[in-house]
Design a protein around this nucleic acid. Structure first.
Lengths: 310, 310
DNA sequence: GCATTCAGGACAGGAACTGACCGCAAGAAA
DNA sequence: TTTCTTGCGGTCAGTTCCTGTCCTGAATGC
């Protein structure tokens, strides 16, 4: 049954006799199995006549995915980058899915995933700390399974401590990961920045989850974070046709034509380096509309470039 | 049976009675089912005594993955970015896995994936053309299923044609996707850059795959590509401690200490904009070691920054 | 020691799976 | 049109194997 699903997933078309042979059953049984699949909600199309066969179409629910080794590795790697913040808005889900995949993944595949990590083309966080996706999954699993977690933590003042907590939830906010947890030794709720944690390990000891005050982990984190890394809203007027600008940096912000040869580029960035990158890529004159402090930054950078490239 | 696997995948610990209740079977049957799973090679651990239960460990093979909607979306999105070239070396596998996932994905989920695409934080291809992952999967599926493919193609000289081909294989090379296919109308093997293709559609007509000359699609592409986009090898001496430089741009190249306060940064980039980004992020003096033409580029960019930020 | 929880053998009833045989229908090619 | 291929589905009998209900053991933690 599962094998049938698996075969249907790998190759789109199969003839009845081929499938029956592969599964070592009679063709009648195969037809019945196909029927069963259909009853279960997996739509299997069939074509009659010469060169007919079966194929699995998309249905209303995800069927069990039967992956080979390589595909599993690819999925894990993809989720890893997504969890790292490459795509907005699905970090949490990615971590959850990653935890699930990693949990059932044979160790040899896990090693391959780890090996590939080193080859990741970095999303270039421009100085921002990166979190290790492996740690992230450990934490996510501990949250899910109500297991206590032990880790080292470097506080903002560089003080290093060992912590034992009852993890509550992972929260992704402003490109950073936070763990909301009950600190067992300090007897209180705390938030931890994941990039400041080291070597998190589930102790294996389970606990009964307690309710968080306000019942809103994300809100809790938001309240706790005094200094949210501000994103800057940047507006530039560029002396280049809107079409060209859109082509080069379009997926980065919005471009709005001001005339034949000029346009306005608006984008939201975390640090000004990205603006420099955009300007470099554009190879066109520009004018800073907003914010004023960007001018000083650009001037300073320009001076450095000019002086040191002599 | 599958439901049991699914439950074991979602939550790490389950007590026997809980599982039995959820599946509406007796506990004896549950134990037998667990046994069966174990015989199938899925290692289910069990803990006795108070607070005991079952958990799914990683085994020697990937079990069928049972995903909920959100997880499926996360996986598709992750694979999408990986296929787009965010991670070196697994583009091909990612596309294969993506094709598989997308094929069985209910339409409503597919729409969610598409919706999320627009929110993708771009890997900032700095002017390089981007391929649409949806097109990529269509092509990959056509390759896999031996279906003819119809699409529009814009050649290097901007000439637009309609093509009907028998797709052979997708090849990812130097951050670009190429399709190797037998052009039915031109009666010859051709390579197509995927980013130059528009609206690829499988016609549904299947064909018998022919062998490619040399039996090596990647080699075929390599031979056909005259101008491979060259990557520049850049070496900079930076007036900042190696540790600091490594922290900021370390995942981007290699850092080697030259003294207490200086170090050498080597990286391989496709375009010089990235060097500007690195210099901006470093906020430190530097000296270009290599290549010489980088100096001119930096000077020009510096001048523009200085002039236009006034 | 006791409660809890998993492990697993024996047994009987029954559901469901299987293969064999059949005629039929739909599509493609001659 | 005819013919061939391939999928569709009904019936039937045999048998596998799944299930629930006993039961006793054994490990774990209080």
């Amino acid at each position: 049954m599962l094998r049938l699903l698996s075969l249907l997933q790998t190759h789109r078309y199969w003839s009845g006799s081929e499938l029956a042979g592969r599964l070592e059953v009679s063709e009648r049984t195969l037809r019945r199995d196909v029927d069963r699949l259909r009853e279960l909600g997996y739509p299997v199309d069939a074509n009659r006549g010469v060169a007919g066969g079966y194929q699995l179409r998309s249905g209303t629910a995800m069927p069990p995915l039967l992956l080979d080794d390589e595909e599993a590795v690819a999925i894990a790697v993809g989720l890893r980058t997504a969890a790292g913040g490459a795509v907005d808005g699905i970090e949490e889900t990615s971590v959850r899915a990653l935890a699930k995949v990693v949990q059932v993944m044979p160790p040899r595949l896990r090693r391959r995933v780890d090996a590939l990590r080193t080859h990741t083309v970095p999303a270039f966080t421009a100085g921002g700390p990166t979190v290790d996706a492996t740690d992230l999954t450990v934490i996510a699993q501990a949250c899910r399974d109500d297991e206590r977690l032990r880790f080292g933590y470097t506080a903002r003042d560089d003080e290093r401590t060992r912590r034992l907590v009852e993890p509550y939830r992972l929260v992704s906010m402003e490109r950073r990961w936070y763990l909301v947890a009950w600190d067992v030794e300090r007897d209180d709720w705390r938030t931890f920045r994941v990039d400041r944690m080291s070597a998190p390990k589930a102790t294996g000891a389970r606990f009964r989850k307690r309710g968080i005050p306000g019942d809103d982990a994300a809100g809790f984190v938001r309240d706790r974070i005094a200094a949210i890394p501000t994103r800057h809203r940047v507006v530039l007027d560029v002396r280049s046709p809107a079409a060209r600008v859109a082509e080069i940096v379009g997926h980065w912000g919005t471009v709005e034509a001001l005339g034949e040869e000029t346009c306005r580029l608006s984008m939201s960035v975390e640090t000004f380096e990205w603006v420099v990158l955009a300007i470099a890529a554009l190879r066109a004159g520009f004018e800073v509309v907003q914010p004023p402090e960007l001018r000083g930054y650009l001037r300073e950078t320009g001076e450095r470039l000019l002086r040191d490239s002599a």
